[in-house]
Design a protein around this nucleic acid. Structure first.
Lengths: 146, 146
DNA sequence: TATTGTTATACTCTATAACTATA
DNA sequence: TATAGTTATAGAGTATAACAATA
């Protein structure tokens, strides 16, 4: 009964194609703010008022901890984030946005929020349907395969 | 009349979220084949039997030509692609997959074709609808804004 | 002993600028 | 003079291994 997945495969193929199309513009978008794509991603992952442990960041980025040290060094030296010793576990360091970091994060989010033309051109019905389906996709994450 | 775009904005926001979720797994997927993400992308962009000029590759990747030289060096030294002098314009070099390159490209594509669980769990109706909408999105690309 | 983050090292990715060969 | 690709160089991203401080 393996042919059940054929539509999921096709959807995935199209999503990948769309990803790669969109991806090309990301480095130059980040560069508008003198950020690298990776730095831009980190800035987005640290939410205002929600300190994030460095180890947790490494996990989310699926990269080595030593890599996070460098990323954080550069963002910290630009005054966008701050390392703070954790009170519970003194081995840990948590990351916080500085006021400048909060502002830049919001500016980038604003710049990034404008959808590509090709999405805007969908009919209203399609747009609503797409939103509904994508919500399902993102909700499905935590559930078990059963 | 600016609120017309609100659904497109929401869809775009969800798509971005999905991108970033999926993106984390890409480097390790490429690493299964001892490829970097960028090398993997290049391998995908060169289609079997369809020589591609280096300049065109740089354009598609939105990166500098000097960067392509290095990428191609590494893939060529692994015997996956080949530089060939263009017959029309002797300044140009076109890229071709070697037989090993064709095989690896197919293996990677096969590995990449398996959709994430969260997509497979959509209902059949939603899957079909998603395919239809994404086809529209990708078709819209070339049209003018009017 | 195990874990968190850092340092040292090495390789890849990326851009800029200067260069070579062709057009 | 302009274009396609290369080289030299430098900074950023990435992983591995060895290390310090803390648990």
């Amino acid at each position: 009964m393996k042919s059940t997945n054929s539509d999921a495969c096709e959807a995935w193929k199209l999503l990948l194609k769309f990803f790669f199309t969109q991806r090309a513009g990301f480095p130059s978008l980040a560069a508008e703010f003198e950020l690298s794509p990776a730095q831009c991603h980190v800035l987005h992952l640290i939410e205002p008022g929600r300190p994030l442990a460095m180890g947790h960041l490494a996990e989310t980025l699926s990269c080595d901890a030593s890599n996070v040290t460098g990323l954080v060094d550069r963002l910290e030296s630009r005054g966008l984030i701050r390392r703070q010793a954790s009170s519970e576990d003194r081995r840990q360091k948590v990351l916080e946005l500085t006021p400048a970091g909060v502002r830049l994060r919001a500016t980038v989010a604003e710049r990034l929020s404008n959808p590509p033309e090709t999405l805007k051109r969908l009919s209203e019905t399609e747009q609503k349907m797409l939103v509904k389906i994508l919500r399902h996709v993102l909700q499905n994450k935590a559930e078990t395969t059963k």
